[in-house]
Design a protein around this nucleic acid. Structure first.
Lengths: 145, 145
DNA sequence: TTCTTTTGCGACTAAATACTCTTAAATCTT
DNA sequence: AAGATTTAAGAGTATTTAGTCGCAAAAGAA
């Protein structure tokens, strides 16, 4: 099941990494993250730009610059990140992609999907970066599992 | 949230359409379905070929040929269709796409995703084509909602 | 000021997905 | 047997997504 685009996945992995570095002060460079997590530097940069513009991250240029979470990891939820990177309507789309689909004019899978989607959305809403960061004991964010 | 590929969506819409035609005897031509649902004929043909090979559909060539459900719509579940069209591991994938991820060596979102995915999978497992077909009162399977 | 480090941003390339076209094979009709 | 209808299958094209490259802009250091 491919729910998230690559860009979103990279963003999530990188943010969880950041959440695990909470005892470090100052900024963490994109170069370091891209190296540690084996993610293309330029690709990651673009994803971070979006997160910076939307207030999830704070960025700073120049030596010892980089990025940092703009608020405590406890207050950043998967829901926020995914909505920014995948679009605001991410949790509202019809499973079949039919335009007018809604409670008033439901597609055949509307009721089914409404229930399933609500469960998923709830999980995204209650899960914070801090919670995820706490589970990462070592280098499990890399591809080389 | 884009969970399913276009091919799968087309397949689902077409199968639901077939389920609504249960009082008709014999085969329904792919041409008719592609026209009624506004789906590319050739694209639909490929999707149907896969469903035919996997025993969901029965096909017949020549005049008044076409396709037909190979068993009652009550016995065909979204789960079956999706697994055929998206791959057997559809409901087993790691949200972050990390290779070794599992209960033994979980990624940071493993527990979270396990719960959400189980709920989704269950919905797909219990929902049959018959159930969906019963909800389609008129031409709500077309794109022109 | 000049050089180095690091993010910002636009253009370019590659790969995956979606779609189209052509021809073959099966089956019915005349 | 010849032609029409309909699925099967593969090759080719287009669009979208993913990934790369190069350079400008900001900021610190020498």
């Amino acid at each position: 099941m491919k729910v998230l685009s690559k860009g979103t996945v990279y963003g999530l992995r990188a943010l969880v990494y950041l959440a695990t570095q909470k005892d470090r002060t100052g900024y963490v460079s994109i170069g370091e993250i891209s190296e540690k997590l084996d993610i293309s530097f330029h690709f990651l940069t673009k994803t971070f730009q979006m997160l910076t513009q939307k207030g999830i991250l704070e960025s700073y240029r120049g030596p010892s610059g980089g990025i940092a979470l703009n608020k405590p990891a406890e207050q950043i939820f998967l829901f926020d990140i995914v909505k920014i990177l995948e679009g605001d309507d991410f949790f509202d789309k019809c499973l079949l992609g039919l335009p007018g689909c809604g409670d008033f004019e439901p597609c055949p899978v509307h009721d089914f999907w409404k229930v399933a989607k609500a469960a998923l959305k709830n999980e995204f809403e209650i899960t914070s970066l801090a919670e995820l960061g706490a589970k990462v004991t070592d280098e499990r964010l890399r591809l080389s599992a």
